[in-house]
Design a protein around this nucleic acid. Structure first.
Lengths: 335, 335
DNA sequence: TTGTAAGCGTTATCAC
DNA sequence: GTGATAACGCTTACAA
């Protein structure tokens, strides 16, 4: 085994085993006809010298990097981490490696991310990032980088999309709520810069209320547990009732905890619904009624679609995940 | 702007602007002397043709990929996701991109991961993975891949390490517990294949008990919330008291919830300590006393160390993060 | 079956 | 200041 030396090249292997590099290349790639004998000989010296091909050179020569670029805002959210897991699982299975590109909340950062993705010469990209709009996606794809976009219905020659459908289940949840005896007024928690998905939720929330002629509230809240918790501790000094629709589990938990700690009962006085549920909806107490989409599945599906796109045999360029509602203890239910 | 065509190369740019590729290269890299005039001309055609250099070719020519390999078991744990975030943050700041390599729980998978890392030709690697032992790390590093290892005290020419120190705070926590009036017997939750960190915890746990001559229990448990929850629901039918030391928040929460749902009081009847605390320790109720290390900081520090290692000016090759104990409501405390 | 040589898109070392 | 030209480590026709 080598030791901190420069890497052995295919040429050195060729020399050591007394063949040309073409032959070594054939052995590596199990291509072309090579005598069993020379193959063995080459393989032996490869092992002996600890030779590993340079993926870089291979990529340059074949115009395939076996790298997939993943563009996300951050891995800090549980649901994104879950998606990341699904993606890496399939990537590994199919022999790709994931290159991570994270964006911040500024336009210039987003542009520089696009630039990096293009330069990095990935074979394809998966984008789950509100910072990038359709034009950006087309830019990336125009550099022959087939792309799967999550949560943004963009489709074109080399772009497929995976979207979420929360509308009908959210609408039904709202309607069901108002069938209760003396239903609480619903409050939607608006987060500044909360992204496309939250905006979508809010739209459905508002439209449903308008449709049935019910009044509702929208209140602003920060996107952190601690902040929301203290805000609602304050809030519950003057309010003692309400049905709160929150984006994520931890936000929902903040409200629930604030209510409980203010001496209110969940769900009798305060009901809470989490829109993007994770396993934590089931861990906190009371458990939180939440809408769920299996994000690991989303990741897997996206990766499969991307691979099909690379092979030019993706037939259906859109895929929609339907959310499901899991009723738990933070809401009242119809008898 | 181009459109799904093959990528423009430096050569085409050179031709279009009537200079040689050497000049274009100089412009791109802002190196060497180029007339203001020709520079402008070249830059214009670059913009016009939408030229982006190929990172692959650059990497091959310069022998620098600006890629860092990150080896982790999975991104599914909150604390790993946090670390990942710290790493990507610094990586972005310093112009590196992260390539993700995940391992499974088999030896052969681990070996293939090592292979992939070497082939992928990253400039450096960060390893946070119990599946890889010292020999594996040395293998990777021997292919001139400087490496930072997290949670494994390995150091050599091109290997630095970031470790965690939970011992003293765990020991103190245990000792303090036994200073209470009528202290509960402590139970350590052993997870099969729980990894190096958990083994370390267990060792400290046992040694501390031996030292002070106290008896203790070790019981096996699965590494999932659901499983642990149902196991402990069963357990609490015949046990009604105990101080449980769990690896992660969700495991601790499972015990706590099982206790509560069995009619036991936390912390009066059942106390719970989480060894690797995350923000969720503060969200569940009762809040969980936990040991904390800021994993985002760990990620950042590791990345900084790796960059220094690459530049050959890393002076201190080890860094130790001290855990801190945050006492919350799941344990009794000394008056 | 095996070797020769061109090419992948850059950088870098020379001359000019 | 600028342009040839040789690397970088590999794949892949095309010859032999």
């Amino acid at each position: 085994m080598k030791n901190l030396k420069d890497r052995v090249t295919i040429y050195q292997v060729a020399q050591a085993s007394g063949v040309s590099l073409a032959t070594v290349s054939r052995v590596i790639n199990k291509k072309g006809n090579v005598t069993e004998e020379t193959r063995k000989r080459v393989e032996d010296t490869i092992k002996q010298m600890g030779y590993k091909p340079s993926g870089l050179a291979q990529a340059l020569a074949t115009n395939k990097s076996t790298n997939i670029g993943l563009i996300i805002p951050s891995a800090n959210y549980v649901y994104i981490a879950n998606m990341l897991n699904g993606i890496t699982e399939v990537a590994k299975e199919k022999g790709f490696v994931i290159s991570l590109f994270t964006t911040s909340h500024t336009r210039s950062e987003a542009l520089s991310t696009i630039e990096k993705v293009i330069i990095s010469h990935v074979d394809g990209a998966i984008i789950f990032d509100d910072e990038l709009d359709e034009e950006d996606v087309m830019t990336i794809s125009s550099y022959s980088v087939p792309t799967v976009v999550i949560n943004n219905a963009i489709v074109s020659e080399k772009v497929a999309s995976v979207t979420f459908s929360y509308e009908s289940v959210l609408e039904k949840t709202i309607l069901d709520h108002y069938k209760l005896n003396d239903p609480k007024e619903m409050v939607f928690l608006h987060v500044h810069d909360g992204g496309r998905l939250l905006a979508h939720f809010e739209k459905t929330f508002v439209e449903t209320h308008v449709k049935i002629g019910k009044s509702y509230h929208i209140i602003n809240c920060g996107d952190s547990y601690t902040r929301t918790y203290s805000d609602f501790l304050e809030y519950f000094k003057s309010h003692h009732r309400g049905y709160f629709v929150a984006y994520r589990d931890s936000i929902a938990a903040a409200i629930e905890n604030a209510a409980t700690d203010s001496g209110l009962k969940v769900p009798e006085d305060v009901e809470v619904l989490s829109l993007v549920g994770t396993k934590y909806a089931n861990i906190v107490r009371p458990t939180i009624t939440a809408m769920h989409i299996d994000m690991a599945e989303v990741g897997k599906r996206s990766m499969y679609m991307l691979i099909d796109l690379l092979n030019e045999d993706l037939v259906e360029k859109t895929y929609k995940f339907e959310a499901s509602l899991t009723e738990r203890s933070s809401t009242l239910r119809l008898k």
